[in-house]
Nucleic acid binder design. Structure first.
Lengths: 346, 346
DNA sequence: ACGGAAAGTGAAAACGTGTTCATTCTGAAT
DNA sequence: ATTCAGAATGAACACGTTTTCACTTTCCGT
């Protein structure tokens, strides 16, 4: 009998644990599943033997029969920046605590590999998919409704307004941008800003579209002239160039609202280091997101906060709710935004 | 017969595709595996039908029988920063091109959840694991040799020297820090720096230990007094505080070498915004990594480059080589570092 | 036209687990 | 002691694929 103990080649299997603990293989399975009936001392013995053999149930096999892979697919754009990093980071921590693992995929923001990527991802059988409207076309994602539940972040709400949809096709995380942007504009207006420019995100981006639309509306409501638009793409470098262009070729501005924080950093550096302008004395700057870098002293950015922790909690809530109610209609969560005042307006 | 075409509930399976294409289920499997013999027109038909049914082979089932999950586990620390983000980003892109997906796990840098995390990850059956000596203890990782092949990055080479090991236990990516650090010290020495400080990374970090040891040796070789050490933990905030402390409580320095770029940013901001010192006139600063943010104009950091693309290519090479030679002894790749001169020394 | 090698084919086995179901065991109430 | 509900148990099946193994067909050179 002791010869079976030598050289446990490859991974240990439930069968091996069962043999060693003198129980049936089914008992081993039960020992690892909480809500099954198994005599306590037996479970204890099995777990002890399992640890000796360094055994863990194979999740691929488990997924095959239970239909749950415990994988959550996350699709991020090729120009993956700080915002996405922090999202992935916090999400992974939260999902891990719930017994899930994060499966990462990169895609183009121009939708060019939509179908190919989704077919690829599909093969891994994620229980849920978190996609951003930036990265995947809604109609392409629709095919995944069989098992995985896509969740959209920043879904542009219909009707121009910001009311959640009555019966959305997918689970959704909506973001109310209006409050935060209104506070931002109010602050600029309070400091007497007359010529407000908008440093945009990527051209085809829906989040950018929604943000610009909201800004225009808010400014109009406050009796301000429409913003001048400088074209960026959410990146530091594009923002840097666009800002220089705005002042060298265009007419400049006395305040710039950037589509995201990283873009705002590019704006700030261009203003200070290239154009030799002072912030906030000559030009005021406001960003969007409130990423970790925004409190760094070189930037100390006033920005519209889209709370990371709150966002991740909402996403995890959506995922778990969906797994417990596979056939329920689309769930929705809605988060608000608010201004965080630091040193770039004043 | 047409009634079978209604409501393809859930995912399509190979059986369904086979039935619809009037072929055997085995033929469907072959159609999706390149190096199998199947009449071309038959394969074409199957693929067409598969597309109609939106079918993709289930990777869980495939993994079960083939023993390849096509998952690569990546373990990152809880204080996941820009360096790790950029690593994950580039790695995911590269692995995706080779048919793999990135599986993300977070861990503590203090090794506290070593075993638990690894047991957890183990269940997902990754074909390979990329870990940093920062995050996982080598002896704990050793248990994973059954299937997954761990790859260490930043493995501190034995003997204080920098020669690769003869027969490493795991596959390894070694980093020669000496050249880059020597160039950094030479540059500082050339500008007449006398009191060089080292802003450390986390206390228990091996990468930090190796970096500090190399710095000491290089400085000694050049006839310089040992560096003053300011304790950081790779984060911006800790670096910021440590720098203030170094000047307010300690004796200051005329040059600071930081364990990583993010730390260097904290150093720079503390010097400029809190201590009102000029860089590089009053104090010179050099970082380590050359992350994307280092060329941002507010920092414009002179730093030791540890090339990202080169690193990722080496990692992917290691993974593929291992999968093709499962029983070969440990492979090694070794990368060098070099100084990138920007504006914080001069 | 013939032989033989190569390519094409499908039935059956295998992968490691969770789940169903019928059976046995336990313990408390009668 | 008897009964009965519920816990505990294990045999058999299911999950969707790849792989093995015989078997049949095709192709090419003589």
């Amino acid at each position: 009998m002791s010869d079976t103990e030598q050289a446990p080649r490859g991974r240990a299997t439930a069968e091996m644990v069962a043999a060693r603990a003198k129980v049936s293989r089914v008992a081993v399975s039960r020992a690892f599943n909480p809500h099954t009936s198994l005599k306590p001392e037996k479970r204890e013995l099995i777990l002890k033997v399992a640890q000796e053999l360094n055994y863990t149930p194979d999740r691929a096999a488990r997924a095959l029969v239970s239909g749950r892979s415990h994988l959550v697919g996350v699709i991020v754009p090729d120009v993956c920046s700080n915002w996405e990093s922090q999202e992935i980071d916090a999400l992974t921590t939260a999902l891990q605590a719930e017994g899930f693992a994060t499966l990462l995929f990169k895609t183009r923001t121009d939708y060019s590999m939509d179908e190919q990527l989704l077919a690829y991802m599909r093969g891994f059988n994620p229980d849920s998919v978190i996609a951003f409207v930036e990265n995947v076309k809604p109609q392409t994602l629709a095919r995944f409704l069989d098992r995985a539940v896509p969740i959209y972040v920043h879904y542009p709400l219909p009707g121009g307004g910001e009311e959640p949809e009555a019966e959305p096709l997918h689970d959704r995380l909506n973001v109310l941008q209006r409050d935060g942007i209104d506070q931002a504009v109010a602050l600029l207006q309070g400091f007497g800003a007359k010529r407000i420019a908008y440093l945009s995100g990527a051209d085809k981006s829906r989040a950018n579209g929604a943000r610009e639309r909201t800004l225009r509306q808010v400014m109009a409501d406050r009796g301000l002239a429409p913003p001048v638009v400088a074209r960026g793409d959410f990146s530091y470098d594009a923002a840097y160039e666009a800002t220089i262009n705005l002042f060298r070729v265009g007419d400049g501005a006395d305040a710039i609202f950037a589509a995201n924080d990283v873009g705002a950093f590019g704006v700030l550096d261009a203003l200070r280091h290239e154009l030799k302008l002072r912030v906030p004395e000559d030009v005021k700057v406001i960003g969007f997101d409130d990423i970790a870098q925004s409190h760094w002293k070189s930037y100390n950015l006033t920005t519209v906060k889209f709370d990371l922790d709150e966002r991740v909690r909402a996403l995890v809530r959506l995922i778990l709710r969906r797994l417990n109610n596979p056939d329920a209609p689309g769930f929705q969560e809605t988060l608000n935004t608010r201004l965080v005042v630091r040193g770039t307006v004043g």
